[in-house]
Write a protein that binds this DNA or RNA. Structure first.
Lengths: 195, 195, 195, 195
DNA sequence: CATGAATGAGGGTTCATTCAT
DNA sequence: CATGAATGAACCCTCATTCAT
């Protein structure tokens, strides 16, 4: 159903990598360990990926693709901008809460990369950031949001805020409900803190 | 006034590390390169630091100490909560804008660490987060902020938002003024986006 | 017939190690030098041995195995105890005289190890010591040897004596015939020095 | 009373080295550890010894000197050759039994050296070997020993035998009395094993 | 396509030795 | 004589990547 022209082993390797990366972190994960987890030979990995780093980026793009699809499914034009923003935050939190390995990947492992890779990741994130941007634009146009804030800035503030909430929850050991934070989080974005 | 009883070479090594880490990232930085940059022999580094990773954490703690001091100097009780928040954001942005190497360290390199180290960093960041928390509490008490938001959550949203703005500015190649974002950023925190 | 299911490279590395150890001693022998001598890459060594020290112990056990086999072949039940002792000494001396590298290994390198390793070596030597012990027991039972000496002690005196003769011959630069000492040596063991 | 032109620190270092070598073995003993044990600075050691290895050889020569002195005191011309041999063995065993650190040094550490050092040690041992040789010669001349054995060979057999008994006792964990072996040992040397 | 044995460059760390004080 | 901070050469081992089968 996905863009699955790719053979099974491609996905098996990615799943193995997700598990191994989440357990040990990118730099401490050996390729051979991923191979064993995926049930393929070490060399096989290099039939599907050029370098170890490519596994990480492919994994990210694949997973982000799935997320974006969920966003696209969950958010539609009938919603108000506020409702859409709520939905985005809800999906963001619930997806990562429901898949801790993926959370480790996005919040910890993907940061373990040099500038080069960070740019590539930034590029992949673009689609998500733009989704938020579109919602902000829509709110401005229909008058439900202020007219004078900087969309380019605020999308960062929103994304960064949600991102930090997830990381904090993850590092703390996932001891509380992440989805319970959706309401207060969106509320802050909407109303700020000023009385 | 700081704990500056440490010998000169200790600081020389940290400065060398800051430069080398910023240029190449932690994992791609050789100890011998840091030694050369600091003007000491390779072995000398191990008179002051137990392992390579210790250089990174010491560097972070040392630099964070300096920042916290600047926050303490810059923010005082005479200010309104809003003014204090503005000052915090201003220092946060201007310090990193004025020291790109330090920005690389905090935004990129320090994320390149396993969970263990992340926890340690999180611990060190606590002081900064609490500073924000205190401002929020003060605003609630004097009535200038809402009474009903969750301080623990909002401090994350504020920190995460600022953090993302800095990272974005850094990765984009520092093509625009970071300090120019202070006003709009704090404004968003205060008023949110709702019309 | 031996446990020679091991791949060729395993033995190639051992032979390389024998040569390099004999020339430079264990501690002054680099793994890379052994690799070159064996015609394999440095890393290949670690496919067959866990640590550098493992090469030494494996080498010893492999070589000792060969020696014990020769003892088993050379000594049989038809011989008198005296003849058997003679044969043991003859094999001991001739094998080491015929393989100076092996002599260096057993007389010099294997002593270059900490207590831990010495114990392991002592364990491996047990088979040889027991061979001597059996001969002594046999002589006592058939009345060709005294009835009242301590077998556990005398086996050490015999082994230690032969061992020292070999070491002395080796350190002196192998300037005389070692096998020529077999007769006088066994004669001393049999008759002592008392007139 | 010894040839003590040497300053106190020289001996302090040797005593420190004896302890450290006995505990860790030569190769695993750091010079700085010896310095600490001796209560001097690292650099001070190099005022008295040229290299680390020199500590080992000096230690050996110093200790061997003490032993030889004890042999000279204990053995005299009034004794029969047999009595003298008994005395030599008694001193050899009792001195090492009474000083386990010294035993470790002679039986284990001194073997941890390359050929060069082994030769030097062999040279130092010469005095002891010659002592045994003299006793053998005396026995031959006064007719209490056979006339036809090879003195050069038998002295090795005797030394090697005693040496192995000590090593075996040491490695086994010194669980039994070493001096109790003097009688049976000398007895074997005198009478051999033949009935 | 798949394998996995083989490769070999690379680097963190130790520690014997030196030398300015 | 004594110090001990500083040096820097030396080396074992790992592991991403390749390639003959």
């Amino acid at each position: 159903m996905t863009s699955s022209k790719k053979p099974d082993k491609y996905y098996a390797i990615l799943e193995g990598a997700l598990k191994v990366f989440a357990e040990n972190g990118f730099h401490k994960s050996q390729v051979s360990r991923i191979a064993k987890e995926a049930g393929v030979a070490d060399g096989t990995i290099y039939l599907y990926f050029k370098k170890k780093e490519d596994i990480l980026t492919s994994l990210f793009q694949e997973k982000l693709g799935e997320l974006v699809e969920k966003f696209n499914t969950g958010v539609n034009e009938q919603m108000t901008a506020k409702q859409a923003l709520y939905k985005v935050c809800e999906i963001h939190f619930s997806e990562l809460e429901g898949n801790v390995n993926l959370a480790f990947l996005t919040q910890i492992e993907l940061r373990q990369s040099d500038l080069e890779l960070r740019k590539e990741i930034g590029l992949a994130l673009k689609r998500y950031i733009i989704l938020i941007e579109n919602i902000l634009e829509r709110g401005k146009q229909d008058g439900s949001f202020h007219a004078d804030f900087d969309v380019k800035l605020v999308r960062l503030l929103i994304f960064g805020g949600m991102d930090e909430v997830v990381t904090s929850w993850l590092i703390s050991g996932q001891k509380y409900s992440l989805t319970a934070q959706v309401g207060p989080t969106v509320n802050f974005f909407m109303k700020g803190i000023e009385a």
